[in-house]
Every structure is written in C-alpha cells, then in structure tokens.
Amino acid sequence: MTTALNGEELAKKIAEAVPGSVVSSDKSSIIIDGKSLLQVAEHFKNKLGFDYLTAVTGVDYIDYFEVVYRVVSMQHNQSIFLKARCYTREDPALPSVTPVWRAAYYQEREIYDLLGIKFEGHPYLKRLLLWEGFNGYPLRRDYL
C-alpha cells in the first residue's frame, strides 16, 4: 500500500527548494502557486523521486479552478497530492506538466476540452472528446 505523505511536512522542504512556490498545505495535499508549478514538478521528479503521475483532475469551485495532480514515487512507495489554482474564469491558464510527466498528455487535453483551462507548454493542446466548433465548456458549473 502506498504511504500518503503528510503535506505540511513536505511543504516545508518544497518551500526551501523552490522559494515562494507553496501557497498553503494541509495533511494530504500541497497547494502550489501556478507560476512555479513546472519548477516544482521538475523538483518532485528529479530530486524527490516522484516518477509516476497517476491522475490529473480539473475541478470547478466557482470562485476558482483547481487542477489536482496525484504523484506517486515507485521508488519510495509514497504519494502526495499537488494542487494548483487559477482564479480567472475567462481564459484560465496553467503551465503544463507534460514535459515532466508524459502521463499528463491526454488528461490535460481532456481538461482543456471540458473545463477550458489552457495548459501553456503542452506539445499538442487540442480538443480530445468534443468536436471542433462546440460552444462552451460542459463540465463548468455555469454551463447550461
């Protein structure tokens, strides 16, 4: 069974390695500033050994969008949730983690399709499920 790390303890280490990146943290997750997300992802993969991204999830909390990354270290058998928020409803954007974890490729395309969050730096950001010319973003809370 994978051990879920304590986010508060890990957040201190992240704040030392990448200054100004941690917004807040709780027992299960770390909320990362969107600007330094790619830097943190590289630190997680290369320094901490979190080599496996299991899931990327987009959530609409009406006030803000949140993208949740669950990363697992196969080496140490540990896992942690990383979260990033963007507070604009028109044209929300976050840096893509696809250069770091290849597994994010299709899931970021799906989030772009259904929630409308743009992932900057994605190699091929295009609609995945819906067709070209579809109006609106169906998984947003204000759709319909």
Binding site: K126, R127, W131, E132, G133, F134
Partner: peptide
C-alpha cells in the same frame, strides 16, 4: 488532421 477535424465539427454541427 486539423482540417479534417474542423470539417468533422462542421458536419456534426450541421
């Protein structure tokens, strides 16, 4: 592929 997708989208919308 891009142009084919756009043509498909137009077809679906029609």
């Amino acid at each position: 592929p891009e142009e084919a997708d756009i043509a498909e989208g137009k077809l679906i919308n029609s």
